[in-house]
Design a protein around this nucleic acid. Sequence first.
RNA 1: GCCGAGAUAGCUCAGUUGGUAGAGCAUACGACUGAAAAUUGUAGUGUCCACAGUUCGAUCCUGUGUCUCGGCA
Length: 296
Amino acid sequence: MSQDIEKIPITVIVGPTAVGKTTFAVQLAEATNAEIVSADSRYFYRGMDIGTAKPTIEERRSVPHHLIDVSDPNEIWSLALFQQKAHIVISEIHQRGKNVIVAGGTGQYIRALLEGWRPPELQPDERLRRIIENWGEEVGKAELHQKLAIIDPVAASSIDYQNLRRTVRALEVIFQTGERFSDLRIKTESIYDALVIGLDRERSELYQRIDDRIDQMMTRGLLDEVRGLLAQGVSADAPAMSAIGYREICLFLQNEISLEEALALVRKNTRNYVRRQANWFKSSDPKIHWFDLTGL
RNA sequence: GCCGAGAUAGCUCAGUUGGUAGAGCAUACGACUGAAAAUUGUAGUGUCCACAGUUCGAUCCUGUGUCUCGGCA
């Protein structure tokens, strides 16, 4: 098809946290004259380096990275914002005559890129959100979900009845636009010609790497990093601070739990995260070229 | 050695006034369109320490044994 010729070729690297995406991406970029576009929802935020396991300064010096350190932790990034910025950055790199590598662990963001999602173009309305949330608290999650089912049965059927957050979001969009949330769930043809590389390791090895990495984060000063962010005025409630490693350390710093408990939680939450990540990229997906890094 | 408490899912434990058992965590699988490292759904698993006794029937009651923990020597 002639359309394919105009698509920008990109290489996408996916895989669970701590599998080794960063190292792989940097080496591939060096070998192929490429720049790296991060697809990681926590790399946006300045000052959140240790706990997010951002690429090191050296790595970023050897290969240009994009969409890292582009935001204050008190700001709220989102899927739609990521898509907008990623499209711009990718076409710029392409115009410079360099190859594009997209690497990251945020499955939703990458899928959106690959599948040409067009999320409804309306700013989040915090006030409306709050109102719907309060409504939900009053009548109960299940009841709120019932209301959604009446207005938009299709959306309701793909949202678990206890999932207040997604129920609220669906209602928020409906109330703002007057249209069904499910009708606004648009997929278009991707503007990219993507080669998708999946990296994986056996769970037991991945879990071991996670534990080791958490130990390293501690010796590198994760505690001070979190303390510093809070001291700078970053709210413990900011979405950025919901990142694994940060929210647990916040609980410790607020004397809610012991350090030992906090670290155990970080390990647990990271493992749970790995399993949720796997939902976005399945080993059965024929479009993904999987490489098993176990033992490497 | 004595006294006390306990032994139930991979772990921590609940429970059955005697009819073969359940939560949390773990584990696995799933959902996801402007908070996504977020939020959330589903599932499997057990010689209920061993042996004997009572009983129609014991994981539960009785006895003995084994092991663990705590206290005292």
